[in-house]
Design a protein around this nucleic acid. Structure first.
Ligand SMILES: [Mn+2]
Ligand SMILES: [Mn+2]
Ligand SMILES: [Mn+2]
Ligand SMILES: [Mn+2]
Lengths: 219, 219
DNA sequence: CAATATACTTTGATTACTCAAAGTTCTCAT
DNA sequence: ATGAGAACTTTGAGTAATCAAAGTATATTG
C-alpha cells in the first residue's frame, strides 16, 4: 500500500504533466508544488522508482509508469469528487475545499468513493471546472487557452480556474469569474501586461498576466 | 497539532475508561485495543504525558487531562458522526463502517464536521447505538446492563452493540440483534455459560457469555 | 513467605519521511 | 571555450512511530 506521501507525489507529478502536456516532469516543479526541498524530492524520486511508480532520469526528470499513472489518476478522481461533495452536499465555499480534499483523499476507501460518486450523480467536473477522471483513469482534455491568450474584442466562456489559493478564488468569485461565465475581452495590452474584461453587466476591470493565465477558457 | 497516532491513543483510552467506568486506564488495555506491543504503548504514554494529554503513573496506568479528554471526546464525535453518515447517506452496511471511520476521523476538519452534523440532522447516536458526544464534549451515559446480566423470563430492548468486528455485526444483523429491537430471554444457564433468546417471531437461539456481553440493553 | 506468573518498562534497531548545507553537472551568454 | 548561475544530487542529522527481546516490579498462589 502506498503511503499518503507517495500518493501526493504521484498526483503532483500527474498534475504537472497534464499542465505542461509533457509526460516527463522536472524535479523542481514537483518539489515546489509539494513545498519540500529539492533534496527531499530527489531522495523520494529514487524511492518511487525503486517501487515501480515511475522512471527516474537523473537531472532530467521523472515519468510515471502505467502503475504510477493509474494511482495518480485515481487520486485526482478522489480529490475532485470530494471537492464536489463538499460544495454540492455540505455547502462549503469553493475557496476552502482544496485543503480539505487534500487530506480526505488519502482516507477514503474505494468502496466509499464509489458510493459517493453514485450519490453525487456521477459528476464530470469539480467546482473549479476541472474534469473528474473516470473509474478507469480516463480524463477529459483541458483547454489549452487561457484568458491571457485571448484577443481584444473576443468573447469566451470560462472553463476552469487553475489556482487553488483561497484568496484568489474569493477574488474570482467576487468578479464573477467562475466556470460557465461568459467574458468579453475589451482590451489586451501586450506591453502593459494586462487585459481588460467585462463579465455580465458589471463594471470592466483589468487582470495582469499572472492572474489571467490562471483562467482557462473555451473560444 | 496532534498526529493521528496521538488521536488514536487518546480515543482508545477514553473508550476503555467509559467501558470500565474508571478514569484510570491500564497500559495493556490500550496496547491491545490499538494492536501495538506493550513497549510501544509505554513509550508513547511518556510522550503523551510530556505533551500534557494525560498523567502517566508507571505500572498503574494513565488518566486523561482535561485537554486530553476534550480531544478524545471530539474524536469519538467525529468517528460516530462519520459512521452515521456512511450508513444514512451513502448506504454502506453497518458491519463495514468502523474501519472506514477509523481513517476518515483524522482527515475531517472541524468545519466539515459541523456541516456534516447539520446535514445529518444532529443525530444523537450512531448505527451501533453508541451515543454521539455533543460539540462541547458531553456524552450520554451508556447502559451498564448487557444481555449476560438478564434473568430468564425478562424482556429487554437492545441499546447498542459494543463490538466493531465485521463478522460479529453480520451475525447480529442476521439474528435481528440491533439497537431498538426487543428481546425475550428464555433461559439463562449460569453453569452452561449460555442464554437462550427470542427476537420477534423468529426461532429461539443461544448465545455464549462472550457474545451476550457485547450487547447492551435497557430493562 | 518464597516461587512463579503477569504486567509493565527499557533498550537497540528499523522505516518513512524531512531539512540544511555542501557538492556536482549542465546550460547559456559573453 | 569559459565561467557564472541554475538546477539538481549527496550527505548527515533529526522526528515520529514501530518491533523484538531483555529486564524489572508486582500480584498470585502453593
Ligand atoms: Mn493530499
Ligand atoms: Mn478543484
Ligand atoms: Mn483512527
Ligand atoms: Mn459505532
Amino acid at each position: 500500500m502506498p503511503t499518503s506521501t507517495v500518493e501526493n507525489y504521484l498526483k503532483q507529478i500527474l498534475i504537472v504533466s497534464l499542465e505542461t502536456n509533457c509526460p516527463e516532469v522536472p524535479m523542481g516543479k514537483v518539489a515546489q508544488g509539494l513545498s519540500v526541498t529539492s533534496g527531499t524530492a530527489t531522495t523520494m524520486f529514487k524511492n518511487l522508482a525503486e517501487n515501480g511508480w515511475l522512471h527516474y532520469y537523473p537531472r532530467r526528470g521523472v515519468r510515471l509508469t502505467r502503475k504510477g499513472k493509474a494511482l495518480a489518476m485515481n487520486m485526482l478522481r478522489r480529490h475532485r469528487l470530494l471537492e464536489t461533495f463538499l460544495v454540492e452536499t455540505l455547502g462549503l465555499d469553493w475557496s476552502e475545499i482544496h485543503q480539505e480534499a487534500e487530506e480526505l483523499e488519502h482516507a477514503i476507501s474505494e468502496k466509499v468513493l464509489e458510493k459517493l460518486d453514485e450519490f453525487l450523480g456521477r459528476p464530470r467536473q469539480d467546482p473549479h471546472g476541472h474534469p473528474i477522471p473516470s473509474r478507469g483513469g480516463v480524463i477529459r482534455r483541458s483547454s489549452t487557452q487561457s484568458l491571457l491568450s485571448c484577443k481584444a474584442g473576443s468573447k469566451v466562456t470560462i472553463e476552469s480556474i487553475t489556482d487553488q489559493e483561497s484568496d484568489f478564488l474569493k477574488f474570482a468569485r467576487k468578479k464573477q469569474l467562475f466556470p460557465g461565465q461568459v467574458v468579453s475581452v475589451l482590451s489586451h495590452e501586450k506591453l502593459a501586461d494586462a487585459i481588460t474584461l467585462q463579465v455580465g453587466g458589471a463594471a470592466p476591470f483589468s487582470l495582469g498576466s499572472r492572474s489571467s493565465e490562471k483562467i482557462l477558457v473555451q473560444a
